[in-house]
Design a protein around this nucleic acid. Sequence first.
RNA 1: GGCGCCGUCGCCAAGAGGUAAGGCAGAGGUCUGCAAAACCUCCACCCCCGGUUCAAAUCCGGGCGGCGCCUCCA
Length: 473
Amino acid sequence: MMRLYNTLTRSEEPFAPATHNAVRMYTCGLTVYARGHIGNFRTFVCTDVLRRTLKYLLGYDVKQVMNFTDVDDRTIAGAEKAGMDLRAYTDQYIAMFREDAQALGLEPVEEMPRATDEPNLAAMAKMISMLDRNGHTYRSDDSIYFKISTLPSYGRLARLDHEGMKPGARVDTDSYAKEDARDFVLWKGHRDGEPFWEYPALGITAGRPGWHLECSAMAQRLLGDTIDIHAGGVDLIFPHHENEIAQSEGATGKPFSRFWVHVEYLIVDEQKMSKSLGNTYTIPDVMAKGFRPSAVRLLLLSAHYRKQLNFTWDSLAAHEESLRRLTDFLARLDTVAGDGSHDAVQSRVDDARRAFAAAMQDDLNTAAALGAIFELVRALNSSIDAGDVGAGDVPVIRQAFDEFDRVLGVISLRRAEDARPPVPVDEIERLIEDRQAARRRRDFAAADRIRQELAARGVLLEDSAGGTRWKRK
RNA sequence: GGCGCCGUCGCCAAGAGGUAAGGCAGAGGUCUGCAAAACCUCCACCCCCGGUUCAAAUCCGGGCGGCGCCUCCA
């Protein structure tokens, strides 16, 4: 059974879904007022690996919801500034998210709801009316607030004591009128020029949803009252997730999420990467510097998800190299010539599979899992050199790597990139032919020239006994 | 003022009582027309000081240093 750290209890706990074999998982997605940066994507890559571990390693069915926040102060301000309709404005960033998600090999999740989709707004309105009925709300200045004092368990996730945040704590200076500074808004009263919705039958006058409400409502609508895992970045623990719990549990009286999983920050130059600090890099930024998304994915998985990871260009370059080691090894399997199969190889592969699975089940220890893979690579490279690997072993080895990669999703990603080299494949193949002819007539100057020209265009050639292979730089 | 995390080789990073995985970089070697790849060898008393223990990178106490949350934020 997998062990997973639960922020709610601040400890690792054995994880299994509450019902049957199906995991219901919600991930807080992106607010679509700008292109997501690789810090945002750290969370999404980690939750993707969690999802894949649950699915492919543990055999659960996974139903995952990841939302887009497409109505809030920033999206509204951005749309206004751009002179665009809110929906059209946020569409752009959703499209970019999808591009980047694909580039990083994120497996599509089952649902990607937007806050402003009508069924979601209706669900939010319904949730407010449930909170009304349970006495958790009040109205002020056309807005609707959640009254924290009505919910004694408030602050349990973030471990905040109700009185604790006094001197030095910055107080929310929201211009909406609240009875208590710590109360939060469920529904913001309509202001000129802003989009609004209303549900008079439920006593909800013109306005728009507060940020926290959408996640509670959409999670409930699409996954049910109690879900198995709720995930997001550590920065969401407070106030976002705390408030989600207040809303959902205040409305239903049932526990909202059994596990809370939080991914630590990606930092850059020893500071958190965030849009407000202006130190962000996006996938296009990374590609413009000549790096590939697969290397970003590997970098993001190179450290445990609950530890801060300091992003540097040097470490991205290092991961480009280590990924190359992996793909070089897999390419080498094609050249294995010997016959038969070997027990020693099989058991070495089994050891690695066990180590990999154990690491992933140990609170998603991707760094240790990668260690197991690289140890296997060296052992098998060594065995190949010694002639101790036969053609009969190759499928077993490939199967193991397929298994690793279904979970980590990095090798297949790199292979997809490799399949689109900067020089057309038929041209590469023709040049290899030309070069082989030159080598046969021992015209090494001509052969080297061809290799250098291709290298300058981003394609490397490697000679071996079995022939010449090419790869992307 | 309150709460929390972290400090392991030049860089990245596992390990969480039994004597330091892995990747990148580096040095020497084998192989090769050359190059690349690959392999072999080399490359760490785990921030400091105390304590507990037969045994501590791992536990406890105290320092020092870094980061984060309590405000919008993945």
